[in-house]
């Protein structure tokens, strides 16, 4: 076998008759330099994954689901591609894409929830809540209605990964009668609420969206022009990418932002 870059060789046979039994380390470690062409990926027997157990598969499903929730929530950010790096075929913005594609957020959306301000350093308070001023009621004015902010709550996806094929959409579980039985009380309550609020929430969401968009516009003025760095903030944040939306999606994917 070829010795590549000091790996894989280990000891070559010792000096047969060393009488003290010592391995003569320094010499043994010499590796013959290999002047032949080396493969980038030398062949080796690739291990085989022991099949995932049902328990593991549930853990994976929950993990993916949880990550998905964060991704469609207000904190996940995707930076646009650098100019010139867009794929002209894939990145074409079509009407349907704009309408149905999942929104991408360039900056986290912070003003949708209440915070425990004292847990944050003072220099961030204004960032968290623009209406914040010490001593005043911390609430926002939405559509002229003074309303307390609420946390975003999502329901739990309790689908089990189905046997052989990993038919992806876990929420398909609701087709199953048995699964339906299992739907938690909370989930039911929440779904009621969701229906209740449909009309209202759409209105609010859109209103918020508009405000938000304006805010973002202003923000861009603040960006420093830093051409020297390997990263150009302006290019990243430059809005030109059609399917990026700064709006509020109310946690994404719910009934809130598509009709």
């Amino acid at each position: 076998m070829a010795f590549r870059g000091g790996r894989g060789g280990g000891f070559r046979g010792g000096r047969g008759g060393s009488s003290n039994g010592g391995p003569l380390m320094p010499r043994e470690f010499d590796v013959k330099p290999d002047f032949g062409p080396t493969e980038q990926f030398p062949d080796y027997t690739i291990p085989f994954q022991d099949p995932l157990t049902p328990t593991e598969r549930i853990h994976i499903a929950r993990f993916r689901d949880h990550r998905e929730k964060i991704h469609s929530g207000p904190l996940y950010t995707v930076l646009g591609k650098r100019k010139g790096l867009e794929n002209p075929f894939e990145d074409v913005v079509t009407y349907s894409a704009k309408k149905y594609h999942r929104q991408k957020r360039k900056v986290p959306k912070l003003d949708s929830r209440p915070y425990v301000l004292e847990f944050f350093p003072v220099e961030l308070w204004e960032t968290m809540d623009s209406s914040y001023a010490p001593g005043t009621d911390r609430s926002v004015v939405i559509n002229g209605k003074r309303e307390k902010k609420r946390l975003l709550i999502s329901s739990l996806n309790t689908a089990l990964p189905n046997g052989g094929l990993h038919n992806g959409d876990q929420s398909d579980g609701s087709d199953d009668d048995e699964e339906k039985e299992k739907k938690s009380v909370l989930a039911k309550l929440m779904s009621h609420k969701d229906e209740d609020d449909d009309g209202l929430s759409d209105g609010n969401a859109e209103a918020e969206e508009d405000d938000e968009a304006e805010d973002e516009g202003e923000e861009e003025d603040d960006y420093q022009d830093d051409e020297d760095g390997d990263y150009n903030a302006e290019q990243y944040f430059d809005d030109g990418d059609g399917d990026v939306d700064y709006g509020d999606d109310d946690g994404g994917g719910g009934g809130a932002w598509y009709d």
């Binding site: 469609s72 989930a187 779904s191 009621h192 969701d194 209740d196 109310d250 994917g253």
Partner: peptide
Amino acid sequence: STKAKPNGTLPNESTISASE
């Protein structure tokens, strides 16, 4: 909500906003 609605189906993405 207090209003007891007949079994509404759960939306696929069941993330909801509670803001209202």
